[in-house]
Structure formats: C-alpha cells, structure tokens
Design a binder for these strands. Structure first.
Lengths: 140, 140
DNA sequence: TTCTGAATTGCAAAACTATTGCATTTGCAA
DNA sequence: TTGCAAATGCAATAGTTTTGCAATTCAGAA
C-alpha cells in the first residue's frame, strides 16, 4: 500500500484520484505547495475540487496552512500528531526568495516569548525569508 | 504642522487628502490596518487609490506589511529608521483572535535562529496569535 | 499670484483568488 | 451487487488586487 493511501485510510477518507495525486505531490516535494501549483500538476482535476480537498485535509489534520510573505496560502503535510481535534504546527517556516519554495524546518522549534502583561498567546508563527540551500551558490 | 504632514515631507511625497487621512488613521490607531479598514474610514477615496498609496508608502519605507494569521495583509507605520533603501522590521507582531486587531510589539525583538547549513536569512517574521490586553477580561 | 509639468487620482476593465449550489458520478460497506 | 453518502465537475457568484487611461491636483518656477 502506498504512503498516500495509508494516510487517507488513517484519516478515514475515501480514496480518490485527486486526493492521491495531491498527497503524492506533497510527499514527493516535501514542502508547502500552493493551490496554483497543485492546479498545474493535476491537469485533469477541477480547481474547485482542489480547494475542497485542501479544506478537507486541513480539517482532518493532514495539512497545515503556511503563510508565506506573498499573500499566497501554501499547504504542507503535518509531520506528526495532528488530527481533527488537535492541530500543532510549532516549527519555523522558510521561504526562499529565489525559487519561491516554502519549507517546514521541522527540527527548529519556535522560541518562546514573554509577552507584555495582559497578552495571552495561543499560537505562534515564525517565518524566515532568505535563500535556501538549493539556491545558494546556484546563481540566480 | 501635523505629524502626518511632516511624514510626507520627510519622504518627499506630495500632500494629498488620501495620504493625510491614511497617515492620520495609522497614527491614531497605532496598529496595523488592512486595506478594507482604510476603505471603511476613507469614504470619499477610491479603492484603487488606497492600494496605490499603500504601495507608495511601503516603497518609501513609511509602512511595513504585516501578514496576520489569516493571510490578510495589514500595514503598520515603521517606527524608526526605515527608508527607501533600508527597511527594518525586526519585531514581533501580535494578532488578537477576539478583536482581530494586529499590533507591533516594537519592544520585543525577534530571537535569532541558527539555520541548517546552506540556508541564509534576509528577514524574519514572528507572529503571535492570542488575546490582546484590551480583550482579556472583557468577555467575548 | 499664476502657470506648467509631473504626480496623483478616479473610473472602467481585467486578472486573480476563493466560495457556493446543484446535478452527476464514484467509492465503499452491507 | 446494490444503495447511499461522499466526492466531483461545472456554472455562477463573490471578493481581492492590478492595469490603462483620461482628468485633476500639487508644488515649484516664473
């Protein structure tokens, strides 16, 4: 059984071509992917279905939305224990200004901050923009 | 001379009603403001002019774009030495889930991170979501 | 103060991005 | 194999941002 199929089963979701292709792309690329990029890779699939699948995956805790600086939502596979009830995404994201790819730096936790009195935190988001390892030294 | 007028002069920009009103709102609120919120407050001004003014201000180093947790762009006055050439915005942003307002926590610097080998950072963005001091204890 | 050119604005239209409704198709368990 | 809820495709709608262009406005020079 493929990895994608296993993910769908674990989430209690039906196996459909759209879902399998989207998971395959995410697994293959290992980074956050935008709706428009899915659209390019899944030619036979309707735009709307991709939107709906993204929402379904997010709701089931399979994906988390990544905010990059460009007003574009991207989605990355949750690496560990996310599910319908509890959604944790406490790592740093990196957006490359050269190739525009966004990656989760799963190994880097977000440093805690002491907030001013009166503020209480639920969630934190740490985004770094720069040049990624693939682009460094590769010219522009 | 009003504060807003001084800002425009320093930036070498012409005085126009739209610009003055936008700066006044930013100065008065002391937080990041979205395009749609500007639109509500500046009734006689065209949407497109607001978009263009935001771009102009950003380019001149008067504003920095803040991405809140909903992937909505908001704009906040740069507090110190930003200009056309150098743009620094190295502080934490806080987005209140209750009132939806976004503030710059100017006094809180962004903790530095040691990136994996090969990555180089230009800019960092640290966003905290939670409940702000005004909303805590005020019920929902 | 008046004039003039460049900057700025408003309006219309286009380009994107995202959502909704509904009829049809599909996956899966009984 | 069949039935039905889930998922999809298509059309339409809603929302956001950008672009082109003509008209207006600002600020410095005369």
């Amino acid at each position: 059984m493929t990895r994608a199929l296993q993910i769908l089963k674990d989430a209690g979701l039906r196996k459909t071509p759209c879902r399998l292709q989207m998971l395959d792309l995410l697994l293959q690329e290992g980074r956050a992917i935008s709706h428009s990029e899915f659209e390019l890779h899944l030619e036979a699939i309707d735009r709307v279905t991709i939107y709906r699948t993204l929402h379904t995956f997010e709701r089931k805790g399979l994906l988390h939305k990544v905010i990059d600086g460009q007003n574009q939502s991207k989605f990355a596979l949750c690496s560990h224990s996310c599910d319908e009830k509890e959604h944790r995404d406490e790592h740093i994201h990196f957006h490359c200004e050269n190739c525009d790819k966004t990656r989760c730096l799963d190994e880097l936790g977000i440093p805690e901050i002491v907030l001013p009195v009166g503020y209480s935190a639920h969630r934190a988001n740490y985004m770094i923009e720069g040049i990624c390892a693939e682009c460094v030294g590769a010219g522009t």
